[in-house]
């Protein structure tokens, strides 16, 4: 059995999507019985997008991972989908599932594209395995940027206490663990474990408190750090098209 995971992030190997796919793969291969093969293909590494169609056709099971881009899939992923036009399943059963991760916390942002993905699977004639949604995905990048001790401390406390129920978004180990477990379960039972999916679907509600906490951390520890790095803090609010 060949499972192919297509990583649709334009950031390729350095993407949040890829990190989650890698964790999934680790879980998947933990108990290797020699029967199953798993591969991860970064869409941006494939020079001829048309060749993706044959990789797709050779796979028994497919997972397509991508970041939410303007409420749907990145253009690259849509180009890939378009190469599957008139695709006729060659295998007896071919299954397809998706990982969608968004920058904004909250499942709501990805639920609309999820409906599309379910129809898309039907269009291909594949068995739809579901969509694993992870909000707050860009937080994976925040921790690596922390240089100031005070920032690291706030960061740690928020992550450890799951402050405001958004704190867990800062805990990369936990995210990767969830995807690791997801991979393990998928290998065993061949479905996405609903308990893990539920864990990823947090915080369920955004209220003023967790919004303020998220805003404080993401704006100060991420955007402002990057703006400083590029010496662009003064230009932050530029409106070049007014």
């Amino acid at each position: 059995m060949l499972l192919t995971i297509f990583n649709g992030s334009p950031r390729g190997k350095q993407s949040n999507s890829r990190f989650l796919c890698d964790a999934f793969m680790k879980g998947y291969i933990e108990k290797d019985d020699g029967k199953d093969i798993i591969q991860i293909i970064d869409l941006i590494e494939v020079a001829k997008i048309k060749s993706l169609r044959s990789i797709f056709a050779q796979s028994d099971h497919v997972i397509i991972a991508f970041p939410l881009y303007i409420d749907s899939m990145p253009a690259q992923v849509k180009y890939f989908f378009e190469t599957l036009k008139n695709y006729k399943m060659k295998k007896q059963i071919q299954s397809i599932g998706f990982f969608v991760q968004s920058g904004f916390p909250g499942k709501i942002h990805s639920t609309f594209i999820e409906q599309y993905l379910s129809n898309f699977s039907m269009r291909l004639g594949c068995q739809y395995m579901g969509t694993v949604i992870k909000g707050g995905g860009e937080s994976i990048k925040i921790s690596a940027l922390q240089k100031k001790i005070i920032h690291r401390l706030i960061f740690k406390i928020a992550a450890l206490t799951d402050l405001g129920r958004v704190g867990h978004l800062l805990d990369n180990k936990k995210h990767f663990n969830h995807f690791y477990e997801l991979g393990k379960q998928y290998k065993k039972f061949h479905y996405f474990d609903s308990h893990i999916i539920k864990k990823l679907d947090r915080p369920k509600k955004i209220n003023w408190f967790n919004y303020s906490l998220y805003k404080f951390i993401a704006e100060n520890f991420y955007w402002n750090t990057l703006l400083k790095r590029y010496n662009s803090t003064q230009q932050r609010d530029n409106t070049p098209y007014s």
Partner: peptide, 14 residues
């Protein structure tokens, strides 16, 4: 195609 670099927010804002 967008590369997801966020340069439009942090390098050349806007």
């Amino acid at each position: 195609l967008c590369t997801g670099c966020f340069g439009c927010w942090v390098n050349t804002p806007g």
